[in-house]
Design a protein around this nucleic acid. Structure first.
Lengths: 232, 232
DNA sequence: AGGAGTTTGTGAACGTGAGAACAAAATTGG
DNA sequence: CCAATTTTGTTCTCACGTTCACAAACTCCT
């Protein structure tokens, strides 16, 4: 007996699938906003930018929420995915490091509308304290512990310079934060049980540059390959 | 004969490896900055946050740049990786959409120091035109074509609201841009041959929320699983 | 010179993910 | 009520990525 029902909390959803669920959620919201009540896996897959076989397989890990011959009820599926991800209630979040990027994150409306609430902005620079960003006051980094305990914060965002990032992470972990979203260009060491996700702007550009370089070399490379083949 | 020498442009580097090369590059730079001239795969792996077997396998796709019994020359390896990625020269980049995030990106010093040069900031809002951000003037979106041709730009960054993103992408593609870094929360449709990478802040948070929820359910889930097992 | 000790590069085993293909289950029309 | 049609859920196969384990190759010491 290896069946895992949708209410069985021990069933495992592949990491690759978890990473796509938010995309499906957004696509479903877009469909709902344009008045669509029902959609096929083909429709939703197109809206989400994946192929329909992969979409169906992903959804099958959550349960059986579609109707054969008909498709999916947009609102119902949206709720099921939101519940699975855990964004039917709001998650309190703290942002540490209110530089250019911290400002942008504090002002990003997508957090609020997608299940997250920024409860505090923290910075070590005394010059920033008291300033208000997006309606939230910037407070001293020392107040992290009090804020985390008051609001029961589990998720922290690091938007500091690279050198400060590990120190901030250590402090967060010590206080009980167990999920960190890291924008600083640094590798964070954290204990088992703490999740870290990294967003790195220049790495993404470097990956594009690699492929761009290969495209640029394309014509020459094809010729070289042909010559190589001829020689062999 | 299937050997691929390091100068053979047809050899294939796995995508997962390509995504890690910039991490190694950064770790090597950090090592060089602290005066280290030579390092083992173990040292570098630790600095990069991966295990040493994976690191060695990744590097083996580039060529054989280490010395058995000794390790890697930091500067030499750094140059080889930079060359492989294509960041030994600067890539010109345009940023479209100068809102909060666009501001932060324009000010991000990591671009400049890692092989990228922001040659233009563009926005459709007349109210922003002429303003200077990080020493670069904001210009009308209409000037995209002239700028791309003048500087031979291949990489574009989209930091607009979701609704504008597809239109901007279409325009970029029409003008000849072949790599796009998209910060807008939207799925972009682009023709074959154009690379798109997506950075989505709220998706990253949602992935963390999913795992956080599972941790929170941990105690209860373990009990439920035990009860389940007992029943079966 | 030769053996002991290090560390790389790689072949092989294993695990995860993607995609094709199809059976199962629903609707629709006669 | 039954056949035709649609669309899901799942199985099977293949490709990709990770990790282990070890031979090859280098240094260092005696």
């Amino acid at each position: 007996m290896t069946t895992r029902s949708s209410t069985d909390p021990t069933r495992v959803i592949p990491e690759a699938t978890v990473a796509r669920l938010p995309v499906y959620l957004r696509a479903l919201t877009a469909l709902a906003d344009s008045g669509i009540r029902t959609c096929s896996s083909e429709d939703l897959a197109t809206a989400a930018g994946v192929n329909s076989a992969k979409l169906r397989k992903d959804l099958s890990y959550l349960g059986s929420y579609g109707t054969r011959g008909v498709g999916y009820d947009v609102d119902y599926l949206r709720y099921q995915i939101a519940r699975e991800i855990g964004v039917t209630q709001d998650w309190p979040v703290v942002i540490v490091g209110i530089g250019n990027l911290g400002h942008a994150l504090a002002n990003y409306s997508g957090f609020r509308s997608r299940g997250f609430r920024v409860v505090a902005l923290l910075d070590a620079d005394p010059g920033l304290i008291g300033q208000t960003v997006a309606g939230v006051a910037v407070r001293p980094f020392d107040e992290l512990e009090a804020i985390v305990q008051e609001h029961d914060v589990a998720i922290g965002v690091i938007a500091t310079p690279a050198l400060a990032a590990q120190g901030v992470a250590d402090r967060m972990v010590a206080i009980g934060i167990t999920s960190i979203l890291n924008f600083a260009p640094a590798v964070l060491a954290v204990p088992e049980g703490v999740d870290v996700r990294k967003v790195d702007l220049s790495i993404e550009l470097q990956i594009l540059a690699y492929h761009e370089q290969r495209k640029a070399n394309g014509a020459g490379a094809a010729a070289a390959a042909a010559a190589d083949g001829g020689a062999a």
